[in-house]
Write a protein that binds this DNA or RNA. Sequence first.
DNA 1: TAATATTATCTCAATTTCAAAATTATTATA
DNA 2: TATAATAATTTTGAAATTGAGATAATATTA
Lengths: 146, 146
Amino acid sequence: MENESVAKSLKLFIVLSRAYKAINEHVNKVIQANGLNPTEFAVLELLYHKGDQPMQQIGGKILLASGSITYVVDKLEQKGMLKRIACPNDRRVTYAQITDEGKSFIQEIFPEHARQIHDLMSSLSDTEKDEAIHLLKKLGLPAGKF
Amino acid sequence: MENESVAKSLKLFIVLSRAYKAINEHVNKVIQANGLNPTEFAVLELLYHKGDQPMQQIGGKILLASGSITYVVDKLEQKGMLKRIACPNDRRVTYAQITDEGKSFIQEIFPEHARQIHDLMSSLSDTEKDEAIHLLKKLGLPAGKF
DNA sequence: TAATATTATCTCAATTTCAAAATTATTATA
DNA sequence: TATAATAATTTTGAAATTGAGATAATATTA
């Protein structure tokens, strides 16, 4: 029956939302306890792990409007966590670059961050995690392109 | 190796976030195209499907701060989608109740909403959806209680 | 080359959210 | 019945996010 299949999709949407929100709520608390908000942390982590990024690409990866990027980068710059670097080739472009201070911040926070996520995921076995990763990739990748 | 297991948890966290955000972004667009923001829709849908709710319980179910509930309920009341009903037993509590106008709004929107979610989930077979539901429940329920 | 379109960033006003304090009502206790 | 503790909602002010232009640089094309 077609209706049952739609109901199943709705059910999946609900459990997906619940799982994400429940986990995220805890993760955000640890981040905020360290003086950053979740968006700031996401930007800083991106720069730490992926290197310098043009402002716009940050928006693409973190899913943030252009006005918000300026705001967040301002905040992080004020805190000394990153600096703006003018692009030598294209004067329209500004890179965001993590500072040494930003790096040591991430280095200090990240292990606790990772450990907490690991704890929150402990209800699944490693095999189940692999299954979940597989299914969520299969679900998320096409949805991003609609 | 313990580190690999932590890395797997981080990976799962990332694909979970991506999948949720990718799907949610699309869902929110349809809702906003119909003149409500996602929070307003969530409240209205809750009242439609679960009946009258005390203000505070709305916050618990939608994961919203108490101050925000007042704001959202104000908005929906202004739009004629719900009304406040004083509780006869306890004068501290106020129920939010969906109006006929709110009901027909949901009735009009919901099929499109459900159909869109179904489309966004179409990369998984029914069996895979069942597996994903199982795993996400197992993941989300304990995380909610930490 | 000049005109036009596109792109990247920023500014600004409006919206949404939260956190903390204030208000009002209920319940427990002495 | 006072009094204190608890609870539900609202108010207030600040922070975060968006979307719509504004500005400036680059790319395209006639």
